[in-house]
Nucleic acid binder design. Structure first.
Lengths: 344, 344
DNA sequence: CCCCTTTGTTAAATCGGATTAGCAAGTTGC
DNA sequence: GCAACTTGCTAATCCGATTTAACAAAGGGG
């Protein structure tokens, strides 16, 4: 049985002052006059007793719990998105805040009840996060609260969003290919996902493709074709096999995810083509497999850690939140899958 | 600005009773006599006003916050271990509890300060989790508290542990090979990790190997050799390549992790050997890649989701916790990498 | 010497509930 | 008809802090 916690009353008693004085001495407020002698005695007593304020009790009066709620659809499960949580956790720790993590699994009713559970515990603010970048409508319980949208957008909902800069990432993919000398024989595998079967495609696909096409065109290069397909390994394998079987001979593939790239690798390998000797590959996401594939995959990293961190930094900033979209850069991870275009 | 929360006083006023009566009516306690009429009026008023109790305020009196602290070294980051959190989250939600998730990143000082932050917020209990199964010494602040150790063991620390049943998993790997007809040409890649460079090997390696050898021997089979190496993809690739180069011709490989298996696949492929036609592979962990490799990998799943769930279920059980080790089964995921032994 | 500040401190109220102790009105027992 | 219960409810206190209001004591000015 844990011994009774030391309270401020204990500290005050030991220091020979009233609880009021102890409170002011400990909070270090200067608007209430406390003599240096008293202050020192209180601080000393607190140190000796190992006093720690009861945040719960304090919050009853101050309304602040130094606590943030984190509501997501299913973020812990997404293999690489755990980084979002780590980023949020670290930023929160630096500011002496704790995070209630919750997952509603896409269930609206569960989402509402979790938000209630958070509000019942007096969280100071709520981060509403999605595992893939997409449009959302937050539960009504969050209206009028201090909220930051993480990896999602909600037009009409008055809160800032933090999302990856997919547009610039598309441009960077194009720049990487141009820099290696590619001008033709370039194919995109995965496409816009204009009517997506894969939820993560909704926004990312469009923006990546838009940035890609813009810079390729400006650089005097041509996109030979766009293969629209889902974003998983079997899709990449199937579509690239089909592409080769149809007689096409791409010099560079822009795969919309690392999983698609893995499928592309398999298909190229089966066709006896080497990466990057015969075909260069540039990808998006930087999942774990990207570094492990042979050759290692050059890819534009989804900045999950930074997304989590930025959301917390934003929400703990003083002052009101502005409904602005914050775009976090997607760094290029240069590895071994891009080479000079093959002759022929 | 969110409008003022409805308090119990509001409900009492609307129902025309005292706060005391409202409190008893709402908590539904039967030891204090409240007339059915009053009870109904209070419940009705609460419903109409949308009253929700302030858990923080309540906890000041009751000491219970319906809140659990979760301290880990770096669990969100470990790609597949996020399932631990999901299991814990779901079990907690079913019981109307919320989780404070924290990560100390292996830093003892950070760990202490996080535990303090949790205790300052009056958590009812703490789950102390490790990303890999290993021996730990929890921070002294947790002594005498309600604690469950998750995926770790702490001899001398009075708390239950929840860990994967690695021993039985080793046995199951052996049984799977025996069932396919394997009796010889069996090699283990990864080994005991008696003096491990890879932290996850400390306990898992020993137990997996012990179970494996026990059942193989009992089944009249022989383990031709054990290759001691780290547990990552390059290690599997290197060691299996070396094994083949040395003239060995294994019929079955027991790879101690899926990452080692992936390396083994690469090495076998480069040598022109097929799985499972020439060589069967059985593995441990069931990371995401296991299902994606070609052929799909037969592996013993680390039950992360169940570990998280069990820990929460245990900690929320009434009554004192017993310092017992709970072993969670590792289910066999039968896929396509085990076949009959090759002739030869 | 008295009034007015300034300084240092504390009693008391507050936050939103839970809990203890007690009080009025109606019933029962004899 | 009065003590003893039972029923139904409420006043008051507590939980551990913060904050407001007020109050002594000391110093300064005239």
């Amino acid at each position: 049985m844990p011994e009774r916690r030391v309270t401020m009353a204990d500290v005050a008693r030991k220091a020979g002052v009233s609880p009021t004085t102890a409170s002011f001495a400990l909070s270090g407020r200067t608007d209430m006059r406390i003599s240096d002698a008293s202050r020192r005695r209180v601080l000393e007593a607190a140190r000796e007793l190992g006093y720690r304020p009861n945040v719960t009790a304090r919050s009853l009066r101050t309304k602040s719990t130094q606590t943030i709620g984190f509501v997501s659809d299913r973020i812990t499960t997404t293999p690489f998105a755990g980084e979002v949580i780590r980023g949020a956790l670290e930023a929160a720790r630096e500011r002496d805040h704790l995070l209630f993590i919750t997952e509603a699994g896409g269930d609206r009713a569960a989402e509402s009840s979790l938000v209630h559970a958070l509000l019942d515990r007096q969280v100071d603010a709520v981060i509403y996060a999605s595992m893939f970048t997409r449009y959302v409508t937050p539960p009504k319980e969050l209206f009028g609260r201090r909220v930051v949208l993480l990896n999602c957008l909600a037009p009409g909902f008055d809160a800032p969003s933090v999302v990856p800069d997919e547009l610039e990432a598309g441009r960077d993919a194009a720049r990487a290919l141009l820099a290696a000398g590619h001008r033709e024989g370039i194919w995109a595998i995965g496409g816009h996902q204009a009517v997506p079967a894969t939820p993560e495609g909704i926004i990312a696909g469009n923006e990546r493709m838009r940035g890609l096409e813009e810079v390729l065109r400006a650089g005097g290069a041509r996109l030979d074709g766009v293969v629209e397909c889902d974003w998983n390994t079997p899709d990449g394998h199937r579509e690239v096999s089909a592409l080769l079987a149809a007689g096409h001979r791409p010099r560079a593939l822009v795969c919309l995810t690392d999983r698609v790239s893995m499928g592309a690798y398999q298909a190229l390998g089966e066709a006896g083509l080497s990466v990057p000797g015969d075909v260069s590959v540039v990808s998006f996401d930087d999942q774990d497999i990207a570094a492990v594939l042979r050759p290692a995959l050059t890819t534009l990293k989804l900045p999950h850690y930074q997304l989590g961190r930025r959301a917390v930094e934003l929400i703990l900033r003083k002052g009101p939140l502005e409904a602005v979209v914050h775009r976090v850069p997607m760094p290029l991870r240069e590895r071994a899958s891009i080479g000079a275009p093959a002759e022929g």
